[in-house]
Design a protein around this nucleic acid. Structure first.
Lengths: 88, 88
DNA sequence: TAAAAATACTCCATAGGTATTTTAT
DNA sequence: ATAAAATACCTATGGAGTATTTTTA
């Protein structure tokens, strides 16, 4: 699992679409598809159900979203903390 | 920044040595050196002072350690949560 | 001066991008 | 029928390993 996978996941979750997410992420739909699939395989769980128009998170997808946001938030916190000149 | 960088950082922090960390990480010293340096550049801060024998965390290194552990811990939590069959 | 980190270099795996096919309603 | 996801494919980037040089207490 990579931080980028979490970023992709969160973007897809909020867009309910691989295609729209790919635009936000300045990449291409096939990459989003690949990374989400790989993340699902890594976790051993389906995170989205694929629908006629876009995708919809599964229950596990909903749960995972909270952790993903939390992790990405913590990383930003760490960055901000390091940036502060008085932080050393 | 990648999760692997955080893992490398934490291992170095706990080993006080790039070389010993490389063994724990089943890789090679040059990779550890490279990833730590890149992480430092990414953050714009030195995380370790290089000593005659091994390394020693800077004040920012000490602070960053807490976040790194926290992030890696949260990722493990997420994995465990997803693994639970009743989590969906 | 010696143990350990940094650097230079090579090779291969894989990430990203293009084009096409498959799926689901 | 059609919009969107999956797949196949190619190329280029960069991650892992090897060998060597540089650093520092």
């Amino acid at each position: 699992m990579e931080l980028k996978d979490l970023k992709y996941f969160v973007t897809v979750y909020e867009a309910n679409s691989f295609m729209r997410a790919s635009i936000s992420l300045a990449t291409v739909q096939s990459n989003v598809s690949f990374r989400i699939r790989r993340l699902e395989e890594d976790l051993g769980a389906t995170l989205f159900v694929r629908l006629r128009r876009g995708v919809k998170p599964t229950t596990k997808g909903d749960l995972f979203y909270r952790y993903a946001k939390d992790v990405l938030g913590k990383v930003e916190e760490a960055r901000d903390m390091i940036k502060k000149p008085n932080a050393a």
